[in-house]
Simulated scan of single mutants.
Amino acid sequence: MDPDSIRTGERVPHGGESERDLLDFSANTNPRTPEGVGDVYTAALEESRRYPDDDYSEFRAAAGEFVGCEPERVIPTAGGLAAIRLAMECVLEPGDEALVPYPSFGEYAREVRLQGATPRFVRYDDLFEIGSTVLEPCALAVVCTPNNPTGDAVDPDALESFAARCGDAGTTLLVDEAFLGFTDRSSAAELDREHVVVARSLTKLFGLPGLRAGFAVATGERRDALATARRAWSLGTPAASVGAHCLRRDEFVRETRARVAGERERMRDALEDEFDVHESDAPFLLCDVGDRDVSRVIDDARAAGVAVRDATTFRTLDSHVRVAVKDRPANDRLLAALGVRSHDDVDPETES
C-alpha cells in the first residue's frame, strides 16, 4: 500500500443502517441464516482460547466444494473485501492503471488508489468489448458479477472471452462474486487461469455480514503470491467454523435462491408502477425515481420505518435508490413505505 495515497485517500459510502428500529433495505444481506449456526459459533468460541490453525483445511475444503475448485487454490480472508485488497496489493504498484467498472462497488477505485495506482473507469456493460489496445497498459481489470448496484450477472461466455483477452494482454483479472451465490451460475474459479483471481463473500448469502468471512481463489504462481501475502490467522476461529458449516448447507442455498428470485420479480412488478426498475440477477433492485427528489424518497421511507440505499453515491447515478430483496413480510413493508401497492393486494374486480 502506498503511504502517499493513504494520506490523500477517503472512505466511501456503503449501505447498512445503524438505527436498529429501522427495517434495513440498504444492505443486500440474506434475512435468514442456516440452522445450526449458533451451536457452531458457541463451540468455536470455546476453541478461540488458542490461535486458529492457519492452514484452515476445513474451511478451504468447504469453499473449494462450493465454487468447484481444489482446496489448495482457496485463500481464506476476512470477507470478500479483504480478498479484493489482497489481490490488489499483490498486483498493483504506484503508477499502474486498473480498469474499474462503473457504476459499481465504490471500494474498487478506493483500493486501487490506496496502492498508488490510477483507476481507469469503463461502463460495466462495455467492459467486455474492450480489446488489447486498452488492456495492455492496465495491470488489473475488475469485473463484478452480478454487478452492484445494477444487478446484472455476466454471461459466462463473455467472461471467459474477456479473461482470455486479459491473459493475452498480461492483465490480471479480478472477478468479484460477492453476490453470485444468490444465482446458480458457475464461478470464474472454474476457469483455472493463472491471471484470474476470484473474490468471494460468505456473509451476504448466509446473512452474517458482521462475521467477516470470505476467500480468494487463484492458481499457480498467483495463488502462491496471495498465500504468501495473506495475513497470518486471517480468519478468526468462529468465522472459519461457521463459514465451513454454512458453505455445506446446500438446501439452504437452494431455498434462498428460489425465494430471492420469486420475491425479486414480485417486487419489480410492483415497483415499476412508480419507478424505472433495472432488471437484476442479484438480491437487490436499482430504481430510478425520475423527477422525484431522491432525498425525499429516502426520508419518506425512513419515516415509515424502512431504510433504503441512496444510490446517487455510485458514479453517474443521480436519481436512483437501491433496495434489497428480503422475505415477503419485509418486502411488503418496503413497498408500503415507498407508496407502492403489491399486485398481490389488488382485487381484479376493482381494477377492471
Score class of each variant (00 low, 15 high):
residue 71 P to T: 02
residue 49 R to G: 07
residue 187 S to C: 12
residue 308 V to A: 03
residue 56 Y to L: 06
residue 44 A to T: 03
residue 135 L to E: 08
residue 98 A to P: 02
residue 217 V to D: 01
residue 313 T to P: 05
residue 283 P to D: 09
residue 238 P to C: 12
residue 77 T to I: 11
residue 295 S to E: 15
residue 228 T to W: 04
residue 11 R to I: 15
residue 58 E to D: 15
residue 129 E to Y: 13
residue 10 E to A: 15
residue 116 G to W: 09
residue 194 E to F: 08
residue 90 C to G: 07
residue 278 H to M: 08
residue 176 D to V: 15
residue 188 A to W: 08
residue 188 A to Q: 04
residue 234 S to N: 00
residue 210 G to I: 11
residue 147 N to H: 11
residue 309 R to N: 09
residue 71 P to N: 08
residue 105 F to H: 14
residue 340 V to C: 11
residue 2 D to L: 02
residue 27 A to H: 14
residue 62 A to W: 11
residue 76 P to T: 02
residue 183 T to Y: 09
residue 333 R to K: 02
residue 115 Q to Y: 03
residue 291 D to T: 13
residue 167 G to C: 14
residue 246 C to E: 13
residue 302 R to V: 14
residue 27 A to N: 09
residue 165 R to Q: 10
residue 247 L to K: 05
residue 17 E to A: 07
residue 330 A to R: 05
residue 348 P to W: 04
residue 302 R to C: 10
residue 210 G to T: 13
residue 299 D to Q: 08
residue 243 G to E: 01
residue 115 Q to D: 04
residue 224 D to R: 06
residue 350 T to R: 06
residue 336 A to I: 03
residue 171 T to E: 06
residue 41 Y to G: 08
residue 299 D to S: 08
residue 27 A to R: 15
residue 129 E to P: 06
residue 89 E to A: 14
residue 165 R to C: 05
residue 270 A to W: 12
residue 328 R to Y: 04
residue 306 V to S: 00
residue 152 D to T: 11
residue 349 E to R: 10
residue 186 S to N: 14
residue 123 R to Q: 09
residue 109 A to V: 13
residue 251 E to Q: 14
residue 82 A to T: 14
residue 227 A to V: 03
residue 120 R to Q: 08
residue 152 D to V: 15
residue 288 D to L: 07
residue 170 G to V: 02
residue 167 G to Q: 09
residue 53 D to M: 00
residue 202 L to I: 02
residue 145 T to A: 07
residue 336 A to G: 05
residue 208 L to R: 00
residue 268 R to K: 12
residue 124 Y to C: 06
residue 160 E to K: 14
residue 86 L to R: 07
residue 156 P to W: 06
residue 85 R to Q: 15
residue 30 N to V: 14
residue 231 R to P: 08
residue 43 A to H: 11
residue 313 T to D: 11
residue 189 A to K: 08
residue 279 E to D: 12
residue 80 G to K: 10
residue 315 R to K: 04
residue 339 G to H: 00
residue 310 D to Q: 12
residue 219 T to Q: 03
residue 11 R to P: 15
residue 117 A to G: 00
residue 271 L to K: 01
residue 204 K to N: 08
residue 321 V to E: 01
residue 60 R to N: 15
residue 267 M to R: 05
residue 212 R to F: 13
residue 89 E to D: 14
residue 214 G to C: 02
residue 60 R to W: 08
residue 166 C to G: 01
residue 320 H to S: 04
residue 23 L to D: 05
residue 37 V to E: 03
residue 19 E to W: 15
residue 247 L to W: 04
residue 77 T to C: 15
residue 256 T to L: 03
residue 90 C to T: 12
residue 186 S to G: 13
residue 279 E to L: 09
residue 94 P to K: 14
residue 98 A to M: 08
residue 126 D to T: 13
residue 211 L to Q: 01
residue 137 P to M: 09
residue 92 L to D: 05
residue 25 F to S: 05
residue 235 L to N: 07
residue 3 P to D: 00
residue 92 L to Q: 12
residue 279 E to H: 13
residue 158 A to L: 10
residue 165 R to V: 03
residue 32 R to H: 12
residue 133 T to Q: 13
residue 154 V to G: 11
residue 100 V to N: 12
residue 308 V to G: 05
residue 21 D to S: 15
residue 45 L to I: 10
residue 86 L to Q: 01
residue 25 F to R: 12
residue 233 W to F: 10
residue 3 P to V: 02
